[in-house]
Computed example of a mutant assay.
Amino acid sequence: MDDGAVLRPRFFVDENTLPLGKALAAVRPDVLHPGHRRCPISLGAQDTEWLPYVGDSDLVLLTRDMKIRHRLAEKRLFLAHAVKGIFLTKAGSTTRWDMLSMVVQHWEKFEPLADLPGPWVRSLTRAGLGELKLPTLPAAEG
């Protein structure tokens, strides 16, 4: 990647891992986070505010928030806006450095995923990327 080129955004790091988002955005012009100068999502925005932006902008979400897959409003938005998500599982118990190291170690696996149509979800652990089931809506909702 040419550091001088401004690439179209491809990745969005949730505010719950803001230090990770800032570190990645400092070295990758295709990474956004809430509050980033090139991102319309402000700090403090609710998941229901930014999920449509992430999906409609064809960005890959990086987050620790596994609850997005379980709360009804977020599930609806995740599916309706074809969000592509990488969930940093077990990241809550790691240091910021360990989380950054884990993401950088597996970054090359993120690149081809960014080109896949959404919705889809993956988990990221130190061992690598794994499949996760897409959120589902109750039968009356689907």
Rank of each mutant, 00 (worst) to 15 (best):
G35Y: 09
L59N: 04
S57R: 11
L43C: 07
E49C: 01
H70L: 10
T48A: 15
W50P: 10
R38T: 05
C39M: 04
Q46E: 15
D30F: 12
V31N: 10
H33G: 07
Q46N: 13
I68Q: 11
D65H: 06
V31T: 07
V60F: 03
Q46W: 08
T63E: 07
G55R: 04
D30I: 01
A25D: 14
L32Q: 13
L43G: 06
S57N: 06
M66Q: 12
G55L: 06
L61Y: 00
K67W: 14
R71I: 14
I68N: 03
G35E: 11
R37K: 12
A25P: 05
R69M: 14
A45Q: 10
L72V: 04
L24S: 07
P29W: 04
L62F: 03
D30K: 00
G35T: 04
M66I: 05
R38I: 00
H36S: 09
L24E: 11
D47P: 13
V27L: 04
V31M: 09
L62T: 02
L24C: 07
D65F: 02
R69F: 15
D58W: 01
V54M: 03
R37N: 13
D65E: 10
L72G: 03
A25H: 11
L77D: 10
L61R: 00
I41E: 09
E49V: 02
V27N: 08
E49D: 15
R28C: 10
L59E: 01
A73Y: 04
K67T: 11
G44N: 10
T63M: 03
A26W: 12
G44E: 13
S42M: 08
L62C: 03
K75G: 02
L61W: 03
P52A: 11
L32P: 11
G44K: 12
Y53A: 03
T63L: 03
L59T: 02
E74H: 09
V60D: 01
H36V: 01
L43N: 08
G55N: 07
D56P: 00
R38C: 11
P34H: 02
P29R: 13
E49K: 07
E49H: 12
G35W: 08
D58Y: 08
D56L: 10
S57L: 01
L77Q: 14
P34Q: 04
P29F: 01
S57C: 08
L51Y: 06
H36Q: 08
S57F: 03
Q46P: 00
L43F: 07
G35K: 05
K75I: 05
L32K: 02
V54W: 00
I41L: 05
V31F: 13
K67Y: 13
S42D: 15
A45N: 13
D58L: 05
P52N: 11
H33A: 12
R76H: 14
S42A: 15
S57A: 15
A26H: 14
L59F: 06
D56Q: 15
A73C: 07
L59R: 02
H70D: 15
P34W: 01
L43Q: 12
S42P: 00
G44C: 04
D65N: 14
T48Q: 14
I68G: 00
Q46H: 15
L61C: 06
L32F: 08
T48N: 10
H33K: 01
W50L: 01
V60G: 02
V54G: 03
H36A: 12
G44M: 09
V54T: 04
W50C: 06
C39A: 08
